[in-house]
């Protein structure tokens, strides 16, 4: 893995008609990396992916891959693979013919073609399904065909659109393992788009969080999970108690509140429900809602801060609805947010 980016997006601006979807995006991706583009719908992640594939013309800026500027290279000459969310298998062709499709267009014929197609189908464990039509396969099998169809082309970059979203929980784990295996064996650079933070955290080497057509944060899964830079990212990865800071004090619906201890210098602070201390601390709140989640218990408190979500281990004694509790938002545990918006 060299440090020079293998795929780079430079000042990339993308638009549908006059509606700008992505503005001035800069992103460098190293060879062999597994990158997640994470964000809610409309954040520009799919648009960015389509531009890398060449399916969407670039309004301005550049896309460079393996040292060459491919901004104006048509999609069919880019050596970029894409596994569609719907898989986009050709319904009239068998599994074998689907996988052979691109190789035949390359002019490959005869035993070379056959060997390559067979190997591709075998690598995703579908050898006994080679003659089936896509409609005769399950969703998980269809996705593996789509993966094999892209991978036999030996793409420089493999793009995946919401690769796990159409699968049930069991298949999701299977596919996750499969993708990691393919990536490890072939060393292909992979970029996948997802709106599911758990998926991104579990799979990616690096996560690119996007919002409103721009990058909000780039970092390792640990960075994103523990050190969100903004209220948006914090909210997206499961921080439920998020407040802006004003002159070292929390700005809440109940006015400015000073936290005990050192006043952090940040635009805001965020706590996961787990980080809230219940049963001791300088503040008081009333239990408004409670729910049991197996190994933990969640509480919704009415407090001077407004509603606060807390989570404690189920082994702790339960608090009844209406109970008046003391609690703390410990400043040292909080994630400091550089930006609040």
């Amino acid at each position: 893995m060299s440090d020079a980016p293998y795929l780079s997006l430079e000042k990339l601006t993308l638009a549908y008609g006059d509606t700008v979807a992505v503005a001035d995006l800069d992103l460098g991706i190293r060879k062999g990396e597994l990158i997640a583009l994470l964000g809610p719908s409309g954040c520009g992640k799919t648009t960015t992916m389509r531009a890398i594939a060449g399916l969407l013309p670039v309004k301005s800026g550049h896309v460079r891959l393996d040292g060459a500027d491919i901004t104006r290279v048509p999609a069919n000459k880019r050596a970029v693979g894409l596994v569609f969310q719907s898989y986009a298998l050709f319904p009239h062709l068998s599994v074998y013919e689907n996988v052979a499709f691109g190789l035949k267009l390359k002019g490959m014929r005869g035993t070379e073609l056959d060997a390559k197609v067979q190997a591709g189908i075998k690598s995703v464990g579908l050898s006994s399904f080679a003659n089936r039509k896509p409609a005769e396969l399950s969703g998980g099998q269809q996705q593996r065909v789509a993966l094999a169809r892209s991978m036999v082309m030996e793409p420089k970059v493999l793009l995946l659109d919401e690769p796990l979203s159409n699968l049930d929980a069991r298949l999701r784990l299977e596919m996750r393992t499969e993708l990691q295996r393919v990536q490890k064996e072939t060393g292909v650079t992979m970029i996948f788009v997802t709106h599911d933070q758990a998926e991104a955290l579990a799979l990616a080497d690096r996560i690119v969080v996007m919002k409103g057509g721009a990058i909000e944060q780039i970092g390792s899964p640990e960075d994103i999970y523990s050190r969100p830079v903004s209220s948006f990212v914090a909210d997206f990865v499961g921080f439920e108690n998020i407040f802006p800071l004003e002159q070292g004090r929390l700005k809440t619906s109940g006015g400015l509140i000073e936290l005990p201890g050192q006043a952090p210098s940040a635009a805001g602070l965020a706590w996961r429900p787990r980080m809230v201390t219940l049963g001791s601390g300088p503040f008081r709140g009333t239990v408004r809602g409670t729910s049991f989640a197996g190994d933990s218990r969640e509480y919704l408190l009415d407090t001077p801060f407004g509603p606060i979500k807390a989570e404690v281990e189920a082994s702790q004694p339960a608090h009844a609805l209406g109970a008046d509790l003391s609690f703390d938002l410990p400043a040292e545990k909080a994630a400091p947010l550089a930006r609040f918006a």
Partner: peptide
């Protein structure tokens, strides 16, 4: 009734738009 992404898939596999 035919998903339009199969054309995009074909293009990404090396086909021209007309092809």
């Amino acid at each position: 009734n035919l998903r339009s992404d199969i054309e995009e898939a074909a293009v990404l596999l090396g086909s021209s738009r007309l092809g």
